[in-house]
């Protein structure tokens, strides 16, 4: 299953004109969802949207980019993401 989501936020006038959108694949190994996101948009929005779409709670999933945990306030810029990169979604791990 695939879907397109576009995060077009009102941009302040002072924003540099070179706004670039990236296509990011988010996958939990069962589902793949594609997002289009601005380089400067916080990934929190993407995470929230993914969780909402999959009916999951944010606290039960972890987003990883190249094995590194993504923080909600990270942006594609801070993670140096490129077009077509993949975010992996992992379930919470519990053990005793």
């Amino acid at each position: 299953m695939a879907a397109e989501n576009d995060f077009n936020n009102p941009t302040p006038a002072s924003e540099p004109p070179a706004v670039e959108h990236l296509n990011i694949k988010v996958t939990d190994n069962n589902n793949e969802v594609f997002f289009k996101i601005k380089r400067s948009t916080q990934l929190k929005k993407l995470m929230d949207a993914f969780c909402e779409r999959q009916g999951k709670q944010m606290s039960t999933v972890r987003f990883l980019f190249d094995g590194t945990r993504v923080r909600p306030e990270d942006t594609p810029d801070t993670l140096e993401m490129a077009d077509g990169d993949t975010l992996e979604v992992h379930q919470e791990q519990i053990g005793g």
Partner: peptide, 21 residues
């Protein structure tokens, strides 16, 4: 975290999980 530009955030609620870093 992430309580700044969320004023116009339609996707997430502001009462998301609180994180310790």
């Amino acid at each position: 975290i992430s309580d700044d530009d969320n004023v116009e955030d339609n996707y997430g609620s502001n009462n998301g999980p609180q994180l310790l870093m």
